[in-house]
């Protein structure tokens, strides 16, 4: 019977042992973006309430099992219930749930609402034109953010940056797998899938969003510390699911602008080169013609 009570004690002991130094053992990853930090704080509050409930209820169970084990001369008390007690513990359960709801509402805003970019943030913010806020898409108070489109496809992530060269909106710079973003800048992600359901998840930059075809999903982050933040597709998307990795490289705004300009230049050069080759091919007559072979 002592063995039944021991898992509870063991679990608490493990938690206490890890609590001061490595609380991260039992908390989600955070530290990359304010929304991830707010989720982490909310999680910890829920964890404390949960630990309290866990210790009280498992404790009561273990105590009852140990204390009221069959022994010579013990006669079970023939009670059928206790209405007052039952109302009391129903009320206690409701109270805990209400507290959880209130705390969630308090923290909710800082998780779902993007913050403004720092003054040092990239000048590119807001260049993509008018934002239409919807139920799912939220904007920072100054309505300025760097909007990057995340495209999920089996089994790679593609990121399309603002700054289309062509008038029809095409020709925007893009990368695969690694997203490059400026620090101190609010980045809005608009995610859409080209094929099956995927899920965008960089744990240190906040929660997941499901990436499905036909309906865009939105999230945001703002990174202050340069570095590489890693994650991977979180929704089963086929045989290559485990290899559908993603990373976000945050670099200072000036470097980012240089990087983006370089991407644009390379893209323009490649397009020009391709146009030249196409013209060359199209001009060929006879057997080498690509138009009417």
């Amino acid at each position: 019977m002592a063995l039944i009570a021991s898992p509870a004690a063991l679990a608490v002991a493990i938690l206490l042992a890890f609590a001061p130094s490595a609380f991260g053992f039992f908390t989600p990853q955070s530290g990359g973006s304010p929304n991830a930090d707010s989720i982490d704080t909310l999680y910890k509050i829920v964890l404390y309430i949960a630990l309290f409930v866990f210790v009280v209820v498992e404790g009561a169970l273990g105590y009852a099992l140990y204390k009221f084990r069959a022994r010579r001369g013990r006669v079970a008390k023939q009670t059928h219930g206790n209405t007052r007690l039952e109302i009391a513990w129903t009320g206690a359960a409701v109270a805990i749930v209400v507290v959880l709801a209130v705390i969630t509402f308090i923290k909710l805003g800082s998780i779902i609402n993007p913050v403004n970019s720092d003054p040092s943030g990239a000048k590119l913010v807001g260049q993509t034109g008018v934002f239409f806020a919807s139920a799912e898409k939220r904007l920072p108070p100054d309505h300025k953010a760097l909007e990057i489109e995340v495209i999920g496809k089996q089994f790679v992530w593609q990121y399309v940056y603002p700054g289309a060269i062509n008038k029809d909106g095409l020709g925007a710079p893009y990368t695969y797998e690694q997203m490059v973003v400026p620090t101190h800048t609010t980045v809005l992600l608009k995610a859409i899938s080209e094929d099956v359901v995927h899920s965008w998840w960089i744990p240190e930059l906040g929660g997941k969003i499901q990436v499905i075809p036909g309906r865009p999903n939105y999230t945001w982050f703002k990174i202050d510390k340069p570095g590489i933040y890693r994650g991977q597709c979180a929704n089963i998307c086929g045989r290559g699911h485990a290899r559908m990795i993603a990373s976000v490289r945050a670099i200072p705004p000036a470097q980012f602008e240089a990087w983006l300009a370089r991407q644009k230049r390379w893209l323009a050069e490649a397009n020009a080169e391709a146009a030249k080759m196409r013209a060359n091919l199209e001009s060929k007559k006879g057997p080498a013609s690509v138009l009417n072979p």
Binding site: P28, I39, L42, Y43, G207, A234
Partner: peptide
């Protein structure tokens, strides 16, 4: 708690 679920879901 749905904001917390955003971290835990599908993990």
């Amino acid at each position: 708690v749905f904001p917390v679920d955003w971290q835990l879901n599908e993990s």
